[in-house]
Design a protein around this nucleic acid. Sequence first.
DNA 1: ATACGTGTATTATGACGCATAGTACACCAA
DNA 2: TTGGTGTACTATGCGTCATAATACACGTAT
Lengths: 128, 128
Amino acid sequence: MIPFRVAFEPGSALHEQVLYAARKAIVGGKLAAGDAFPSVRTLARELKINPNTAHKVVERLTAEGLLEVMPGIGCVVAKAAAGSRSEKKRLLDREVEALVVEARRLGLGLEELQGAVEEHWMTLGGRK
Amino acid sequence: MIPFRVAFEPGSALHEQVLYAARKAIVGGKLAAGDAFPSVRTLARELKINPNTAHKVVERLTAEGLLEVMPGIGCVVAKAAAGSRSEKKRLLDREVEALVVEARRLGLGLEELQGAVEEHWMTLGGRK
DNA sequence: ATACGTGTATTATGACGCATAGTACACCAA
DNA sequence: TTGGTGTACTATGCGTCATAATACACGTAT
């Protein structure tokens, strides 16, 4: 009964894949702010991974501000963080540049790239 | 005398960083189609990395179609590859989704994300 | 109080990738 | 021939990843 699924594939670390799936679920609205997040041991059991690996995921999500820990209780998904717009853009800088480089490597145009971005944005949940 | 620079930082593999820097230079127009690409041993010497690591970079760039090997001579940067638009978009799929997820995690809006994409596109070289 | 489920911390181990080092070969040009 | 190209192979030290097995402080429910 986990609110997201992970298609384990080689190429990136296991905990990175779980981390991304969880991020995607939270950001996409499948888990609303205040909802309970699966416990470390539940994650480990359901996904058939080591508790240490599952804990690493929760640790990272907490550090990113997506989860809040209730000691002795568990974790709940947090509200959207604050922070200035320019600061946020700066954090995205590298990833945006990497995507642009990759798009041009494939010979795509700016309009096509932006179209793909909008498409994925809508797929993930139109609002926001 | 290498047409690009690499700021070595931890977090990703060494050859990945060199690979990305080279891709960026080619795609950004710093190296035109037909220009000679630094040899494996030159790369190794200038960047102070192992020849095997340098060769891995050239190998990957060749596999991506960005370089062409002239046996016994060296490498030159290739022309833009063909391929259908839909096929290219499919290859970008994961990276686009990852960027969208990251942007929403930071609480950015679609317009802001599109703006950042366009900004980096222009920075890399307005045309194309 | 007891039992159970939280997050967290610690140590250990095997597997894998990365970067390095060294050597060797087929190819082409001056 | 000499020197520079890409390529292939083996080997080694290092770090990360995922696993395993405990252990502790905390809070809830019985």
